[in-house]
Nucleic acid binder design. Sequence first.
DNA 1: CAGCTCATGTAATACGTTACATGATTAC
DNA 2: GTAATCATGTAACGTATTACATGAGCTG
Lengths: 178, 178
Amino acid sequence: MSLRHAVLGLLAELPRASGYDLLKMFEISLDNVWPATQSQLYGELGKLAKEGMIEVAAEGARGRKEYELTDAGRAELLHWLLEVPPKPARRDDTLLRVFFLGQVGPEAARDFLTKQGKELDRRLADLLDLEGRIKWDDDNLAVYGRLAMEYGKRFMAMRRDWYEWAAKEIEGHERDGS
Amino acid sequence: MSLRHAVLGLLAELPRASGYDLLKMFEISLDNVWPATQSQLYGELGKLAKEGMIEVAAEGARGRKEYELTDAGRAELLHWLLEVPPKPARRDDTLLRVFFLGQVGPEAARDFLTKQGKELDRRLADLLDLEGRIKWDDDNLAVYGRLAMEYGKRFMAMRRDWYEWAAKEIEGHERDGS
DNA sequence: CAGCTCATGTAATACGTTACATGATTAC
DNA sequence: GTAATCATGTAACGTATTACATGAGCTG
C-alpha cells in the first residue's frame, strides 16, 4: 500500500505536478526504491483524488491536470512516515536460489556464487560512477537522496562480500568431499 | 514467478510431499526468503501438475496427494537456478520513508532513524538467538540454509549500522541549521 | 506536415493476501 | 465424543506488469 505514499511524498516536495511529471520523478529518482508504471500511477492519482488526499489545482494544455496535496493528504503522509512501522521486504530471489543450490553440486554452486559476486562488484562500480556524476543541490530530496545512495552502496558491498564468503565456504565443503 | 521454483526446489530436496507438507516447509524454512500462503501454494501445485512439472505419486488418507518432481520439473529447476539472472527486489518500504523524511524536520528525522536502528539491533539479537538454538544437520538444506542465515545476519547488521550513520548525518545538518 | 514529446486513460493478466468452506482422522 | 490436526480447495480483493488506445501541441 505504499505507492500512494510515494505519490504523496513527491507532491509534498514539489507542490503541483501532473501525472506525467510524477512519472518522470518515479523514473529518475525513485526507480531503485519504489518503481511504478504509468498505469499504476494514473490509477492511484484517481483514487487519491476521490479520497480527498490530493486535488486538481490547475488544468493545462493537452488535458494536463496539475495535482496538489490537500491537508488530509499531508496528514496521511506524516502519519505514514512516523507512525506506520516499515515492513522490510521478505522475498529475495537470490537467496531462494542459494537455498536450493545444493541441487547442482559444489563446483557449480561455487561458480554461481563467484559469478554473482563479480556481478555485484560491477554494479557497485556503476553506482559509484553515477554518484560521482550527480550534482547534489541542497533541497530535501538531495539531502535524503544522499542517504539513500549510501544505503545502496552499503547494500551492494554487503552482498558482494557475502557472495565471496559463501563461495569460499562451499570450496571448504568441496575439499571435505561432502 | 518464483513461487513455482520454491516449490520445485523443496520437492527436489524432499521427494514426495503433499501440499500440506510443503506448507509446513514454507513456514519453517522459507518464511524469511520466500513466504507463501496456503491458497497460493495449492493453486501453484495445480498449475505445476497441469504443466507436467510435478505429478501425484501417491494418494493417502483425507484426500492427501503426494507430489513428486518430474524430469521436466527438475530441468526447469536447474535452468532457473543457473541460467535465469536473479533480479534483486527493488521496493524498500523503509528507504521510501527516508526519501521523504525531510518533510518532518531534522529532529524527528533523526529520532526516526535512531529508533529504526535500535529495532534492527533487537531483530539481529533475535536472529542470533535463533541461530544458537538451531540444530544443523548435514543435509543440503542445512548447508545452504547456513549461508542464508549468514546473509540475514549481515543484512541486518548493515542496515543497523546505516541507520546509526544516517542519524549522525542528520545531526550534522541539524547543527548547521539547514 | 511528419515525427517527437506530452498527456491521459483502459484492458488483460498475473501474483499475493485474507477469508470462507468443508470434511476426514487422530488423540485424549 | 470433542477438540486438535491434517488436508484440500474456492472466492474476493488489492497490487503490479504489459500492452493497447487515443489525441493534443511543439519542432523541424
